[in-house]
């Protein structure tokens, strides 16, 4: 029996309890997002001596939903959650005030900087902003997906996998997340069919691992066309692109792991975005609005990797620091 105790409980309840977030203060830097980009920015900003605060509705961002991380330099293996705990612990040793479980509704430019309005109507003032809102799972966009969401269509394999014990499931996607989900599910489900519309994008090392599972079937160059069922998912329709044949796969679960969409709701009418909806940033993480910087998965920086997001967060904080010092 495992117990995945969150090491930061002491910082939440105990003797190491951290300073409360001051909603009346004028911040030098307000970071929106508590994933690797936001946390790394917080670390760098605090070390520069800035008055910095973080607002977020999801500690750790997408990393939390990752089973294992094996490509972060210096850490040969960590669970996604374990890595987030290390990040959080590191930042909290510097006593950075954080407002968790808070939605940011909007922000406005003012003479002294920015006013950020939270979901409950409170307004936080800051000289600069770092947008590190990350991304969310991309949907397939096929018939039935929406209707069966939470009824067999799932986006978090580690969360929902146990509910499909002994059943037949499909994983959609061909990147690292999809292959890892298929490996995890193969330990629980009766069979796992991986369906991907083109060739694998995943690292060879984990494809080899997938190929060693005896209950995994792989269909590349295959497109999912429809999810069907009666109340709950009972199957999907797929198109074999090589033969043009449409087939039905009888499955009870469909795990969608086909990449991510930027969480750009906050900036959609305010900052320049690319055609994928990602915030356009330059090498200094500046956006199209002065005083607003962005980092991590929400930006057009290529390769959505934890280490990339962390390094971008550091850059954004350093650029913002220069901006503040220049006055």
């Amino acid at each position: 029996m495992d117990f995945n105790l969150n090491m930061n409980l002491n910082e939440q309840y105990g003797k190491n309890k951290k300073a409360a977030f001051d909603k009346e203060a004028l911040y030098d830097m307000l970071i929106i997002g508590l994933g690797p980009a936001g946390l790394s920015a917080a670390l760098y900003a605090k070390r520069k001596g800035l008055m910095v605060g973080v607002v977020s509705n999801k500690v750790g961002g997408q990393v939390v939903d990752t089973t294992s991380v094996e490509n972060y330099l210096g850490i040969d293996f960590a669970t996604g959650e374990g890595l987030v705990e290390k990040f959080m612990h590191h930042v909290q040793t510097l006593d950075v005030p954080m407002l968790k479980d808070a939605d940011v509704k909007s922000f406005e430019k003012t003479e002294s900087g920015f006013e950020v309005t939270l979901g409950r109507g409170e307004v936080i003032k800051s000289k600069t902003l770092i947008i590190a809102t990350g991304s969310k799972p991309r949907r397939l966009g096929v018939k039935g997906e929406e209707a069966f969401m939470g009824r067999g269509v799932a986006y978090c394999a580690i969360c929902d996998g146990p509910l499909f014990e002994g059943r037949d499931v499909v994983v959609a996607g061909g990147g690292n997340s999809a292959v890892e989900a298929a490996i995890d599910l193969s330990k629980i489900a009766n069979s796992v069919t991986l369906v991907h519309r083109s060739e694998f994008r995943a690292d060879q090392i984990i494809i080899d691992h997938l190929n060693r599972q005896s209950n995994v079937i792989i269909h590349l160059q295959t497109e999912i066309q429809e999810v069907f069922g009666d109340g709950l998912v009972s199957g999907i329709k797929v198109l074999d692109k090589a033969t043009g044949e449409v087939r039905e796969l009888k499955v009870e679960g469909l795990f969608v792991e086909i990449g991510y969409l930027p969480n750009n709701q906050l900036v959609i009418d305010k900052l320049d975005l690319n055609n994928r909806g990602e915030i356009i940033v330059n090498a200094l993480n500046e956006t199209s609005m002065k005083g607003v910087f962005a980092a991590g998965d929400v930006t057009d920086t290529p390769y959505k990797q934890i280490i990339v997001a962390a390094s971008e967060g550091a850059k954004a904080a350093l650029t913002a620091n220069d901006y503040i010092n220049r006055g």
Partner: peptide
């Protein structure tokens, strides 16, 4: 919840 779900708690 499931016991392997990080954000269920």
């Amino acid at each position: 919840v499931t016991l392997s779900c990080p954000h269920c708690a």
